[in-house]
Amino acid sequence: MMHEFFSQLGITYGYYFGYGFLALLLVAGAICIIYAGTDIQKRILVALPVCVIVLTLLNPVYYKLAGLTADYTYARSYWNVPFFLILACMWAALVRKAGKSKGIGISVVMVFMILLWGYGLGSVNSEHNLFYVRDNIYRVPQNTVDIADMITNDCDGEPVVYAPADICRFMRTYDADIKLVYHDWWKELSIDYGTYSVDDEELIVNYQTVYDFINADEINYKAIMQLQKLTGWNYVVLKEDSGQSVMQTEYGLVRLGTVDGYNIYKNVY
């Protein structure tokens, strides 16, 4: 248990402070405050955070209790202390104590250190595309909005949609009147798992099969149509290169249009 506790403590520290620049700045700030701060600053900026850390993060009993409630409770225990505000207050207190010229010097060094922490030493989060302006006020991918609009404008009753994962993902955050056959994030299906008999053939329905029918490189048109009989989807969205697909020629679906390389079909039967 203790090994697990210390291992989790290290992981959590890494998630919060990363390479430790801010932790270093906090320790340096705390030393300065102990040396030159007022009583209330010593109490709130140093003693109180230490007390909270000791009672929570460094406490194996707390770790055990936190684990009972949710797996992320302990990992978020760093949030119990507003570290960044404390650092900012330490900084402001030192600038005030040091006077104008020294204060500017301290500020320049601090900005440089924070820049290093945030931007330097390979910590830049390049794999996430952080800074881009969303196309619309809903902050939902534009192709999802266009497809949802096309379907709701066409549908008289209740639209049930079967679509690739990246289209499903935010469809219902934009328009919750649309029902989906499955959702990839929660791995949820609108029907129960099982083996169903459709047109005298057996169709295995579980999350993976329903996902693969429409998301695999080779779209399984037949299974998609079999699934229509089970789930009652009335719109299907397919990522296809050709304009005229099997869905129209063989299964008689009506193509509503194409959005961003996705063909949207309506089942008129």
Binding site: L22, Y78, A88, W91, A92, Y119, N125, L130
Partner: peptide
């Protein structure tokens, strides 16, 4: 001053890959 400094810290934490920070 503390608020100005805090905003600087918040701004730079956007770049950070350690997603468990409040900022």
């Amino acid at each position: 001053y503390a608020i100005i400094f805090l905003t600087i810290i918040d701004l730079f934490s956007m770049y950070n890959k350690f997603e468990l920070t409040t900022s």
